[in-house]
Computed example of a mutant assay.
Amino acid sequence: MPTPPGTDPAPEMEIVHLLRATAVELGLHSARFAHRNGMHATDVRALIALMDARRAGEETTAGRLGAVLGLNSAGTTALVDRLERAGHVRRVRGERDRRQVVIEVEDRAVDLGQAFFGPLIERSVELLRGYDERQLAAIRGFLGGVREAAAGQG
């Protein structure tokens, strides 16, 4: 049977298109969270970056946060001020270097995110439990490679 014009039957392309569609749906899910909580999309990305850093045991300065998000100094200051006014973050002295001011995510923001994203996270974990270690390693490798490829396109 001939392939219809404009379609790519390769299984790799099917997966690439599925990943793209998944990224779009995750972006829409994140946008709904931002809208419901009176936030900008960048606010949500900032909170995610801060939570990721917290999980990794890393302190995040405003400069580092701005670099991660691709913001200039003024944009980063406005972002942190907005998140601080909303009670989502706080500025504190660094543990490693008391001269530095680091940005920490408040537990209130973590709880807010967990209430909204928790069901999606739980469903994702449930799906992953259906795979063996070899399959999980393949999934991890694929997603890590795509992330590195996307990061390298900046």
Rank of each mutant, 00 (worst) to 15 (best):
G38P: 02
R93M: 04
R20Q: 12
G113L: 11
I103H: 02
Q135E: 15
A49T: 11
E59S: 00
A151Y: 07
G141C: 11
D97Y: 06
F117W: 15
A109L: 06
E126F: 10
D8F: 07
R45L: 14
L26W: 05
R123V: 15
I121E: 13
M1L: 02
M13H: 13
H29T: 13
V125A: 15
D97G: 10
V102R: 03
G66V: 00
R98K: 13
L71K: 04
V44T: 11
P5H: 04
A78S: 11
Q153L: 15
T61F: 04
V92H: 01
A78R: 14
V101C: 06
Q100S: 12
T22K: 04
D52Q: 06
E25N: 01
S124W: 14
A138M: 12
L65P: 14
I139L: 15
V24W: 00
N72Q: 05
A49C: 11
L47K: 07
A150W: 12
L143M: 14
G113H: 09
T3W: 10
D43C: 13
T76S: 10
H17R: 12
G57V: 00
E133K: 09
A21E: 11
R140M: 08
L120R: 15
V92I: 04
E133H: 09
P9S: 03
V101G: 05
G152L: 05
S30T: 14
G87F: 01
A62V: 05
V101R: 15
R129G: 13
Q100V: 12
A34C: 09
V80R: 02
L19V: 14
L26N: 07
V16H: 10
E58P: 00
A34L: 11
R93K: 09
E104K: 08
N37T: 13
H29I: 09
G27Q: 06
H88V: 01
A53E: 03
I103P: 01
N37G: 03
V68C: 01
F33D: 07
M39V: 03
T76Y: 05
R129N: 14
P9M: 00
V16W: 00
E95C: 03
D52V: 14
R85Q: 09
D111E: 14
T42K: 03
M1P: 07
E106F: 00
H17I: 00
V44N: 07
A62C: 01
Q153H: 06
E126R: 15
V68D: 09
A115H: 11
A86N: 07
L83P: 02
H35T: 13
G87R: 02
G141P: 10
E25W: 09
M1C: 06
A74I: 08
V110R: 07
G6E: 05
G152M: 05
S73L: 03
L65K: 07
T77L: 13
I139S: 07
G75L: 03
R123H: 15
R96F: 06
H88F: 15
D8S: 02
D43F: 01
F142V: 10
F33R: 03
R64H: 03
R85A: 08
V102Y: 08
G70Q: 04
G63F: 01
L79F: 02
M1R: 08
I121S: 09
E59W: 01
V80W: 01
T61C: 04
E12L: 12
V101S: 14
R45W: 05
E59T: 05
L79R: 04
D8A: 06
E106G: 00
T60Y: 00
E133V: 12
L79Y: 01
R123T: 15
H17P: 01
P2N: 04
H17C: 09
R93G: 08
L127N: 12
L50Q: 05
